[in-house]
């Protein structure tokens, strides 16, 4: 997995609430059997990004010259609600987004981000409002996200800190694949199974 340590980048303001996974990547682009090399990025936000004839909508933030290279998204509450599809973070990542800052996220989407080297950050609405203003200044306003220090610094030098689960932070900082980590606990898992086989034998079919 890609590491996430520190990122200085343009942040795009997307002040909408309840952006759902269908909006992030519509279902017609889910018909793949691969995880990478999908080019999902060009389909990210299809319905709000393109006109019916496939041309770009000028009013969509990521189509504007200042934000084409944005790597941070500042957005509204309940981002990523809806389906469990990991295609949503894949599409964002393929577009080039590495960090999403919002007042709240839907649970499944939030977890999916970490598995793909994307950092979702939860901050109170008033802090989001300030960052939204910063982001509104386009390419002139570089925001820096430091996962090691758990800090975001704005273009004017203001610093806010954020909370994050220590285990998830550790995995992101080191680019760790948590399947490998869990497999090291094989014995504890086997012990649990042996114990449960006695108390709830119907759970095991073999």
């Amino acid at each position: 997995m890609d590491k996430f340590i520190r990122l200085s980048a343009v942040a795009a303001p997307l002040p909408m609430s309840n952006i759902d996974t269908d909006m992030i990547i519509p279902q017609q682009f889910l018909k793949t059997i691969k995880r990478t090399g999908l080019g999902l990025g060009k389909h990210a936000f299809t319905n709000i990004r393109y006109h019916d004839d496939g041309t770009e909508r000028a009013d969509f933030v990521l189509n504007q010259p200042a934000y084409r290279a944005a790597e941070i998204l500042v957005t509204g509450e309940n981002f990523g609600c809806g389906s469990s599809r990991e295609h949503a973070p894949w599409a964002l990542k393929d577009f080039g987004i590495k960090c999403i800052i919002a007042p709240s996220f839907a649970d499944i989407f939030y977890g999916n981000c970490f598995k793909n080297g994307l950092l979702p950050i939860i901050l109170p609405q008033d802090t989001i409002d300030l960052l939204m203003d910063d982001a509104g200044r386009g390419a002139n306003a570089i925001i820096t996200v430091d996962l090691e220090k758990q800090e975001i610094s704005g273009p004017d030098g203001g610093v806010v800190s954020f909370e994050i689960d220590p285990y998830r932070r550790h995995c992101l900082l080191n680019g760790l694949d948590d399947i490998g980590l869990t497999l090291q606990k094989k014995d504890v898992i086997k012990d649990y199974e042996a114990k449960t086989r006695l108390s709830q034998p119907w759970l095991f079919k073999d």
């Binding site: 995880r35 389906s83 469990s84 599809r85 990991e86 973070p89 499944i108 977890g111 999916n112 598995k115 793909n116 689960d165 285990y167 948590d178 399947i179 869990t182 497999l183 606990k185 898992i189 199974e193």
Partner: peptide, 21 residues
Amino acid sequence: AFGIGTSEVEHVMATQTLILK
């Protein structure tokens, strides 16, 4: 019972567990 992303699907396939809060 709850929905999971594809990385977690793989985690369960390989370990029969998930890391959760």
